[in-house]
Design a protein around this nucleic acid. Structure first.
Length: 600
RNA sequence: GCCGAUGUAGCUUAAUGGUAAAGCACUACUUUCGUAAAGUAGUGAUGUGGGUUCGAUUCCCACCUUCGGCUCCA
């Protein structure tokens, strides 16, 4: 952590003390637990005992914080004995627990008291509270378990943030507002993309016609990309005998599995992952080394029992579609195949306008070889293959030692969206374990049976989650190629509808997704609606356009085949509000096509 | 799942222990309009199930939905 961050963290952490002081001042008898600084602010946990606190109390608490701040002096840490500390905090069971733990760990115990508020703290504070702690704001309230342990008591957590200057605080609050405006749940409704029905159930999104267009465009793109690069698509059903997950060793370890159902006399479950189904494809017949790399893919729907409190919009759902890919390789092919996959992943990011990304490579903890399957040499080779492939493609990465699964190392790729937020999208996992569980083997040049390695690949992860990320990334204004409606045709009055219909037909003939607004509304209202719907282009048609066109009477349009696109005129406006003026249909279609090809 | 908040029409919001208000949207009619909201009228709602009460959308209980959290360690 750099110096600047330390300074900011110290201020935020100090502000948590101030919050604790204010709440205890309002309700003597509550216990303050811990109050660290976090990524965008700080929090303070309380055991409210017999009181309650809600966001409605924030103004009152903030006011008290400001009052107390007036009398606060610079923080000073004072080392005290265990005995003294236990005496000072005898009434606070959380502090007592901490003091005892620290004593056991032989840590120094320090206290501070910036202004009639004694607290236990390791240090790292403001040297000028009156000045430095001014620009804070309480944000939200939530429950959190003491020490993050769901078996322990639930405390009340108050979140807040603080910045050194008012400008920085305001900027942060503005960014939060902006993120709220882009919230895919709000845009999903406003733009008619998807809905979540109470009758169908939480975490089970339904895609409306426009959302379904976006969804299938994403899927079609991924299918084409993969097909063009040697992947064969398969299709697998959504349930399987429970036994298959015993074979894969997921049973009992994977807690998001839905309860089993009885069919005839046997137990079946909804599939929580596609892997075992895909393995059946490999197992279909004896495989030769000549068939490797053996690549199969499917946008496979899986079902995961996410905790009820964790489902949210499209980000966390219970029915999701994974752009799943399994590649069976021989060991010597690892590096080449990784290179190939990572390159494709970069293509995907390009296509969707993610300019910044970085990777995390999860490695084994070499001090504990017993925790991993396979020999240290195999691991060494696989890990190096991952690192070298990332290096070769100039992907920045950091290493997570000890984060690998027991069956192989992996690489996860995170992208940065247009608001600067990071999302994990892709994952490529090496697996030496499942071939053994399922007895998947190929026959090598010498006629010997050999276990392949498997690459588990998801380029965008869940299509639903990816859509949520895209909606927020683009703030609902999808690039032309991905827009559910690409062109809105807006006749000025109903005298111009017939000509508009012809234009619509001609655009549709060129595979442009068009919507004709023939409602009885003013042109201003139609423009407003199309703009709010974030439709990239509006085509405005009135007397002027028709007059300029070679065919003067709307009735004559389409009669005979003499019309030509370059003789039909339209006016064009963009969703950004730019008036592109009069142009003929040929020019317009050419413009659209070229823009679609460069995926803008 | 747990803690807290929440639930009024398709959306955004109002009000009340005694007929639930409005804007947008929708429907009909009028208007035929030139680059971000034409006019008039109409349809439409208290999440579900219990309880208290003469009477509940309002108070109480349970359930459900949605939202913020539950990884960040004095």
């Amino acid at each position: 952590m750099n110096k600047k961050n330390n300074y900011l963290n110290n201020l935020r952490h100090s502000c948590a003390h101030l919050l604790a002081a204010a709440v205890k001042d309002l309700h003597p008898g509550v216990h303050n637990a811990i109050g660290p600084s976090i990524e965008n602010g700080f929090y303070q946990d309380f055991d409210m005992v017999k009181w309650t606190v809600s966001e409605a109390d924030f103004p009152k608490i903030e006011k008290r914080m400001r009052e107390l701040l007036k009398s606060w002096a610079p923080f000073e840490e004072k080392e005290v004995s265990v005995k003294q500390a236990l005496k000072d905090f005898a009434k606070n069971p959380y502090k007592v627990e901490l003091i005892k733990d620290f004593a056991k760990a032989d840590k120094k115990i320090t206290e501070n008291n910036p202004g009639n508020f004694l607290d236990l703290c390791k240090g790292g504070h403001s040297h000028d509270p009156k000045k430095e702690l001014k620009n804070f704001k309480l944000l939200s309230i939530a429950g959190a378990y003491w020490r993050g342990d769901e078996k322990k008591k639930m405390l009340t957590r108050i979140y807040g943030t603080l910045f050194p200057t008012k400008e920085e605080l305001d900027k942060y609050l503005w960014q939060q507002e902006e993120a709220k405006k882009r919230d895919h749940r709000k845009l999903g409704r406003d733009l008619g993309l998807f809905l979540i029905s109470d009758q169908v159930g939480p975490g089970l999104p339904i895609f409306l016609p426009k959302g379904a267009v976006v969804r299938s465009l994403i899927e079609e793109y991924l299918i084409k990309l993969k097909k063009d690069n040697g992947y064969k698509f398969v299709w697998t059903p959504h349930i399987a005998r429970s036994q298959i997950y015993h074979t894969s060793q997921h049973w009992g370890k994977y807690d998001a599995m839905f309860s089993a159902m009885k069919l005839d006399k046997e137990e079946y479950v909804l599939k929580p992952m596609n892997c075992p189904h895909h393995f059946q494809v490999f197992l279909d017949k004896p495989r030769s080394y000549k068939e490797l790399p053996f690549r199969i893919a499917e946008n496979g729907v899986v079902y995961r029992h996410e905790k009820s409190g964790e489902v949210s919009g499209l980000l966390r759902v219970r029915a999701l579609t994974i752009d799943d890919t399994h590649t069976f390789i021989r060991f010597s092919q690892t590096y080449d195949e990784l290179n190939r996959v990572l390159k494709l992943i970069k293509d995907v990011f390009d296509k969707f306008g993610f300019k910044e990304f970085k990777a995390r490579i999860s490695l084994r903890d070499s001090r504990h070889p017993e925790k991993y399957l396979g020999s240290p040499e195999e691991w060494e080779r696989a890990e190096n293959a991952l690192k070298n492939a990332a290096k070769h493609l100039q992907i920045k990465y950091n290493e997570g030692v000890g984060e690998a699964a027991f069956y192989g190392p992996k690489i996860d790729i995170m992208v940065k969206d247009n608001l600067g937020r990071e999302w994990q999208l892709s994952t490529v996992q090496l697996d030496y374990n499942q071939p053994k569980n399922f007895s998947m083997k190929y026959i090598d040049e010498k006629g010997k049976d050999v276990y392949p390695a498997i690459l588990h690949i998801a380029m965008v992860g869940s299509i639903e989650r990816f859509m949520a990320i895209l909606i927020e990334h683009y703030a609902g204004a999808f690039p032309l190629w991905l827009s559910p409606i690409q062109v809105a045709i807006l006749p000025i009055s109903d005298k111009h509808i017939s000509y508009s219909k012809k234009i619509k037909e001609l655009l549709e003939k060129d595979d442009i997704r068009v919507e004709l607004n023939d409602e009885n509304k003013t042109i201003g209202a139609k423009i407003r609606e199309a703009t709010l719907q974030k439709i990239p282009y509006m085509v405005i048609i009135g007397a002027e356009e028709i007059r300029r066109s070679t065919i003067l009477s709307p009735d004559s349009i389409g009669k005979g085949s003499h019309y030509q696109q370059d003789k039909l005129y339209i006016s064009v406006r963009t969703r950004e509000g730019k008036n592109l003026g009069l142009m003929n249909l040929y020019e317009f279609i050419k413009k659209l096509k070229s823009q679609i090809e460069t995926f803008l």
